[in-house]
């Protein structure tokens, strides 16, 4: 999975092996990761250009500034103000003939919960790709409103937990940047990978010193994921410890 000569680089086959293992566990846990491959023709099956993908919905409060963000799991709240005022202003044509609808549309059998103007549901899409230049996994993500509008960089910044935000802003090289998705060519946000090796090294060293199965991608994701609202269930770790599953995934 990683070079044992204390150089914690991840090669591409190692990345794929880690992803396959993560996928198996996600399947068991119903965690929603899937593997998407990009277009090689039918004859090009060997080219494993692909990425892990997961989408998560989060309900975000927007009534005050700063506001409470409620994780969908309900486990955690954070101080954020996600949507800029202009983002809420849809500028819809108020003149539409809604008045004549109201009389027959009155529906006493409907709960008035659909209209909760204090909260906004956002869909986050996370992609894990391999970066050849850094020899590490890279986390790409984007977020959409329920109308299908993607969040701006500024809105994404404000959705980051304040603790992480400070941390990221103080270190410009580990920051969130907007970049083209290398495979899809669409604008995404990414967590820059240049610090990845730095925080992975001690972890891999420790697991090497007292042999313990480590899934590079999983461990890495447990560090970077929470920064952008992606939580990794602890169960992945408990699933990992039946050690036999790892050796089979090791390329060499």
């Amino acid at each position: 999975m990683f070079n044992k000569m204390s150089c914690p680089a991840l090669d591409e086959p190692g990345f794929h092996a880690c992803c396959q293992l993560l996928l198996q566990q996600s399947e068991q846990l119903g965690d929603g990761w899937s593997w998407l491959e990009l277009g090689g023709g039918p004859g090009e099956e060997g080219s494993e250009v692909g990425y892990l993908k997961k989408t998560v919905l989060r309900s975000v409060a927007v009534d005050s500034n700063p506001v409470q963000t409620q994780e969908a799991s309900g486990s955690e709240t954070e101080q954020t103000s996600i949507l800029q005022p202009e983002a809420q202003d849809t500028g819809e044509p108020a003149s539409l003939n809604a008045d004549d609808l109201n009389d027959y549309i009155k529906d006493e059998d409907a709960v008035c919960t659909a209209v909760d103007i204090n909260s906004q549901v956002l869909q986050y899409e996370y992609h894990i790709l391999y970066s050849c230049s850094y020899s590490t996994p890279v986390l790409y993500f984007r977020a959409f409103t329920m109308e299908g509008r993607s969040l701006t960089l500024q809105e994404v910044w404000s959705s980051i937990h304040p603790n992480y935000r400070l941390c990221l802003q103080n270190s410009p090289l580990t920051t969130i940047t907007q970049q083209e998705h290398p495979l899809l060519g669409q604008p995404f946000f990414m967590l820059h990978p240049c610090k990845t090796e730095e925080f992975m090294r001690p972890l891999l060293q420790a697991s090497h010193d007292q042999p313990r199965p480590v899934n590079y991608v999983l461990s890495w994701l447990s560090v970077v994921g929470p920064v952008v609202g992606l939580d990794i269930p602890l169960k992945y770790c408990t699933l990992l410890h039946p050690a036999s599953s790892l050796s089979s995934a090791e390329p060499d």
Binding site: Q88, T90, G91, E92, P93, A94, L96, A98, L101, N102, Y104, I105, K106, D107, D109, A110, A114, V115, I117, T145, E147, G148, R149, S150, T152, P187
Partner: peptide, 24 residues
């Protein structure tokens, strides 16, 4: 029977929605 079902807009009023996707 009588029917209902038009969705309310984000302001809670009976009306359409609009999304501006020029950015993307």
């Amino acid at each position: 029977p009588k029917s209902v079902g038009w969705e309310k807009n984000p302001k809670g009023a009976m009306g359409p929605r609009m999304v501006n996707l020029s950015e993307c």
